[in-house]
């Protein structure tokens, strides 16, 4: 059963009550929230996600709620709880939904050690996974949303989970977070895209999430082999241009974009270099999404056979 099949009333009951347990890739999340924005965004963006039995095991217990003090009314806030502990300061109430998504990123990146966690978007097409690490603002999420809306399978837009056992990416396909101008850009690029509520004035500016394709959610148990590392850079007016990058340089770039590289020690290094050895690596400058997608399609052809 998926979230949509629960029906609005039951979804509300569970979020308000002991929580709804849903699955995203390897993880079961128990989400509780009494906040309408979380309920409406969740029912819109998570319609296709499997619901897990209520009496099973949940990896992360998450609760987003309003404080029981003055800040319930005066400049209202939202609180994120990880199983009863509050790891962050509250955020403005209007950011309740993105707070849930950011908080869940923290849960995964702080508690999971059987994967090297790379701050990157990862997508797959024809058996080849492309890893796009990058600092905020380089256009990684925009490119990620565009590719997935053109049929690439979404593994993640934020947390690339590279297994230390088999060096494959485990999909954790969650809604893709867009910022500022990217939101309209993607809405125009793919009018069929389902985009959740816009939250203004966050630390990242205006934020909205795009629903992950149903196919990506359905195939969340299918791991993918890393074949391409692409460091994107949005450059206004630029033609799409791939610049080959040496493997050591690519490895250093990725190491600087991981959450737990040093925590994994030698195992982190071994996993990273093993991945890089199987990848072609590029820097990529672009300004037009259609050009970018053509370039990525051609890269796939180059990697076949």
């Amino acid at each position: 059963m998926n979230v949509a099949a629960l029906g609005a009333a039951e979804l509300r009951n569970r979020l308000h009550g002991d929580g709804l347990v849903y699955r995203v890739g390897p993880y079961a999340v128990r989400l509780r929230s009494s906040i309408d924005q979380v309920l409406s965004a969740f029912s819109c963006l998570y319609a296709d996600y499997p619901v897990e039995p209520d009496d099973g095991f949940a990896d992360f217990h998450v609760y987003v709620h309003r404080p029981q003090n003055l800040r319930r009314w005066y400049r209202p806030q939202a609180i994120f709880e990880f199983d009863g502990k509050v790891p962050f300061k509250p955020l403005p109430f209007s950011q309740s939904y993105p707070f849930f998504e950011w908080g869940l990123n923290w849960c995964v990146s702080n508690h999971i050690s059987n994967h090297l966690i790379i701050h990157s978007a990862v997508l797959e097409n024809r058996g080849q996974a492309v890893v796009m690490p990058g600092n905020p603002g380089v256009g990684k999420s925009t490119l990620c949303a565009a590719l997935m809306l053109r049929g690439w399978r979404l593994l993640t837009d934020e947390l690339g989970m590279l297994s230390v056992d088999d060096c494959l990416f485990a999909p954790v396909p969650r809604p893709v977070s867009l910022k500022n101008n990217s939101i309209d850009l993607i809405a125009n690029f793919a009018p069929e895209a389902v985009i959740g509520p816009r939250c203004e004035d966050t630390v990242k500016g205006t934020v909205a999430h795009v629903r992950a394709p149903a196919d990506s959610v359905a195939r969340a148990a299918e791991k993918a082999t890393p074949r391409l590392v692409v460091l994107p850079q949005y450059v206004e007016g630029a033609n799409a241009q791939l610049i080959p990058l040496s493997r050591p340089e690519a490895a250093m770039q990725i190491a600087g974009n991981t959450f737990n590289y040093s925590r994994l020690g030698l195992q982190g290094f071994a996993t990273l270099t093993r991945m890089i050895d199987g990848c072609r690596c590029f820097e990529f400058r672009y300004s037009r999404l259609d050009d970018a997608i053509d370039t990525f399609e051609q890269l796939l052809v180059g990697g076949e056979g």
Binding site: H111, S113, R263
Partner: peptide, 21 residues
């Protein structure tokens, strides 16, 4: 131990071992 809880035990152990180093 079932796989799901073992993941958390393993992860915690790995962090502890690394911490010891």
């Amino acid at each position: 131990i079932p796989e799901a809880p073992l993941l958390h035990l393993d992860s915690a152990r790995l962090i502890a071992d690394r911490h010891a180093v």
